[in-house]
């Protein structure tokens, strides 16, 4: 608590502290009173009960006091929250996209990453988009969370106030690998950030190496492994040249995975569904150039 990691942590933690304080007071007080009454008015000590039907003054008291207390709690919750929705004008804009089961962050200059990198002490606004189902971007250390709703736009903002790396988790259940939809936010010095931001040399990778980078960027790795373990989809290891049983329009057939098959699997995965797997892979038609497809296949070929 009170780590000051983002501009909201202190307000949120203060709200927590106030409510928990009041709650503990009532929990301990009322429990103690209950136990005291059970001991003090045990039938051995108090053989004759006294009928008391009620007391208007007390009823008023214990209506008014809780009312005041909950209004105080409401106020703290509300004021802390209002700030969360008021984005400063100079905030840096980043688009955060979620899909089953990975994150992409796109900066204004077109730079795309799977981990969020932000400069310290600068307001950042995330525009939240989803490509499939609802996800929720949650950074526990910053005390922020907001849903990514497909077909809708939502946003969040914050200021990273301490250097370091923090977890980004998905808080809205989104299917098989929901708990693995994890990323990081790196809060770094302004200068380091600028160097990183202006460095767009990643395009210079070639061949298989570029293929690996593409697989990572396009979230293929959240469903496919490269080491032979079966995740949601078949592993890429040994894929090239593998004899696979597929179902195509209800007909089961055996094929050998060659370049054409792999390209078709990527562009239109619903056409040939590998036996034993569900038809949930998104279609990548028109999202990739021929060159990119070839680079990915080149990398897959190296996984024997």
């Amino acid at each position: 608590m009170f780590t000051n990691a983002s501009n909201f942590t202190n307000d949120v933690d203060l709200t927590f502290a106030i409510i928990i304080g009041i709650s503990l007071f009532f929990l301990i007080g009322l429990t103690a009173l209950m136990i005291y009454f059970m001991v003090r008015y045990h039938h051995k000590r108090n053989p004759v009960a006294k009928d008391i039907h009620g007391h208007v003054g007390l009823e008023i008291l214990w209506t008014v006091v809780p009312t005041i207390l909950v209004l105080v709690m409401f106020y703290y919750g509300w004021s802390g929250y209002t700030d969360m929705r008021k984005v400063p004008d100079d905030a840096m804009k980043i688009t955060a996209t979620g899909r089953m089961w990975s994150w992409t962050f796109e900066y204004e200059n077109g730079k795309k990453t799977d981990t969020l990198v932000i400069p310290i002490d600068k307001p950042v606004k995330l525009d939240l988009l989803s490509e499939d189902v609802i996800h929720s971007l949650y950074i526990p250390a910053f005390r922020v969370k907001e849903d990514l709703v497909p077909g809708d736009t939502n946003y969040m903002w914050f200021i990273g106030q301490q250097l370091g790396t923090y977890n980004i988790l998905c808080a809205e259940y989104c299917g098989d690998r929901h708990s693995y939809m994890v990323s990081k936010v790196d809060v770094i010095e302004q200068q380091a950030f600028e160097t990183w931001y202006n460095d767009t040399t990643q395009a210079t990778l070639e061949g298989a190496e570029a293929g690996l980078a593409l697989l990572k960027q396009n979230a293929c790795m959240s469903c496919h492994s490269v080491d032979g373990t079966t995740m949601v989809g078949p592993s890429f290891k040994g894929l090239f040249g593998r004899n696979t049983e597929i179902e195509s329009n209800g007909i089961v057939k055996n094929i050998t995975a060659d370049e054409l098959y792999i390209i078709k699997s990527i562009e239109d995965p619903a056409a040939d569904v590998v036996k034993g797997f569900s038809n949930i892979m998104p279609a990548y038609k028109d999202k990739m150039t021929q060159k990119e497809l070839e680079q990915m296949i080149e990398y897959i070929k190296t996984l024997k």
């Binding site: 949120v12 927590f16 709650s23 709690m73 509300w78 929250y81």
Partner: peptide, 19 residues
């Protein structure tokens, strides 16, 4: 009931919602 008060308070709920 008392833990529910935290859910009712907007700023605090944002943190614990869906946990």
């Amino acid at each position: 009931g008392l833990t529910g008060l935290i859910n009712g308070a907007l700023a605090a709920d944002v943190h614990v919602h869906d946990t």
